[in-house]
Design a protein around this nucleic acid. Structure first.
Lengths: 141, 141
DNA sequence: GTGTTATATATAGCTTGCTAATCATATTGG
DNA sequence: CCAATATGATTAGCAAGCTATATATAACAC
């Protein structure tokens, strides 16, 4: 019985996240972005000139993934790359004007998505949910 | 303030699910499977001879995704395809012996993963979490 | 019965992710 | 100073996911 509840949680998490990703992905296409690229841009909005390794850490993904995302975002004109002056191995990533302009529309989409997700869930429940999820996060890392 | 809490929830969900997927993916490689394929097999364990459209619905994904997954699983010898007798458009998917044998090891991995995820979260909290997530699920669909 | 429309699957081409292997540059040890 | 090692990024190749498009078959309309 309790086993079943736990199992539902794993499945539910899976369903919710894949559905969210799908919805969100569709919504981002309006801005000529793919899902995940918004997170990379998010990191840049709080400070340009970051290395790809730093993006790896922030996105919690592997270097080739960042290489691909950066390539795609550069081709679409949202960012540009510049080789570091002191260390020629390092690429530093900067926002273009177009990239900077995405901050507000993306934030609006985030807000919209979280409103949809949390609809009719009470503030106390949200607090509790957040606490439990924090615990789950630390369990995984 | 409350805005911030909500935002954390969206981000947390994203982090948790991507981390879970990553861990799980790595774990499945021991069985020569890729993440997502276990869900397809899961549908077959509760009844063979399903069409690809039915798999689409169960996995909540698009037809080309199922085509690719089925191709990969067939090449690895876990399933086989047979054209329907009455409707020549339809492909029916069946488990091979190898595919059937995966049920227990995969269930073990599920259990292990959910134990890791829910570590130190109390039964009452789990019940509540499940209820809130059910609400979130219905918000999205 | 033939033409049109609907349905099931497949193909092409894209991005996100991964791993394994490669390349270029830095750093460190002798 | 030069060899060995470490580090940052890239490339190749794979699977999950998508969209748009194509193909084959079925069902429906006239």
């Amino acid at each position: 019985m309790e086993e079943k509840v736990d199992c539902d949680i794993r499945e539910l998490l899976d369903k919710i996240s894949s559905r969210m990703r799908r919805d969100y992905s569709e919504s981002l296409r309006e801005l000529d972005l793919y899902v995940g690229q918004d997170n990379l841009l998010h990191r840049l909005w709080s400070g340009d000139g970051v290395t790809q390794m730093q993006l790896c850490e922030h996105l919690n993904c592997e270097p080739p993934t960042v290489t691909n995302m950066v390539k795609s975002l550069e081709q679409n004109g949202f960012i540009y790359r510049k080789r570091d002056q002191k260390d020629a191995r390092v690429m530093r990533i900067y926002l273009t004007e177009e990239g900077k302009e995405l901050e507000k529309p993306i934030e609006a989409k985030w807000r919209k998505q979280q409103e949809k997700l949390l609809n009719s869930i009470l503030p106390e429940e949200r607090m509790l949910l957040r606490r439990i999820m924090k615990q789950m996060e630390s369990n995984l890392f």
